[in-house]
Write a protein that binds this DNA or RNA. Structure first.
Length: 151
DNA sequence: GCCAACGTTGGC
DNA sequence: GCCAACGTTGGC
């Protein structure tokens, strides 16, 4: 089993949305590195730290679980969607997504600022300079440390 | 295939 | 709103 961190802007789609929806497809990723992970690496049963970015207090806010492995992101060929891409078609899909299910919302969210002070999280991609990927792998240790801080 | 210009992300 | 970092685009 592998562990991942997914970023989302809470104003756009936050942990409370996922809690309400129970499961949701993680669409709209338009970056090749992230696409490759969604298509090839993220497996059913993998665990996800849900992270709020581009907001007042950037923070890890909960846990989700992968319930469906990579399949074509059909929002790409919907011109009315948030991130349409005419280069992607049902015959030749360019972008992929997975489905995730709500597991829990942290009792206290774990801010980016707090995570920076934790030695065991020092090598996490989230804390590296210039990190812009919207999702990336984390270690089991990272996952455990963050979930413990959140409870 | 190089690289300048431009766009986007995201913390601050 | 600023800016650093990085991805993408497109001319050559």
């Amino acid at each position: 089993m592998n562990y991942w961190l997914f970023k989302s802007e809470p104003g756009c789609y936050g942990i409370d949305h996922l809690k309400k929806d129970k499961t949701e497809h993680w669409d709209g990723v338009r970056n090749y590195q992230a696409r490759n992970m969604l298509r090839d690496d993220i497996k059913k049963g993998d665990m996800v730290i849900f992270y709020h970015s581009s907001c007042k207090v950037p923070a890890a806010v909960g846990v989700a679980k992968v319930v469906k492995e990579g399949y074509p992101d059909f929002t790409a060929w919907d011109p009315k969607s948030e991130h349409p891409d005419p280069k992607s078609t049902p015959d030749k899909p360019l972008w992929y997504m997975v489905d995730i299910a709500f597991v829990k919302k942290f009792e206290s969210e774990v801010s980016l600022q707090e995570m920076r002070t934790i030695r065991e999280l020092g090598d996490m991609q989230l804390l590296k300079r210039g990190n812009r990927l919207s999702l990336f792998p984390i270690s089991k240790r990272h996952f455990n440390v963050i979930t413990e801080l959140g409870s």
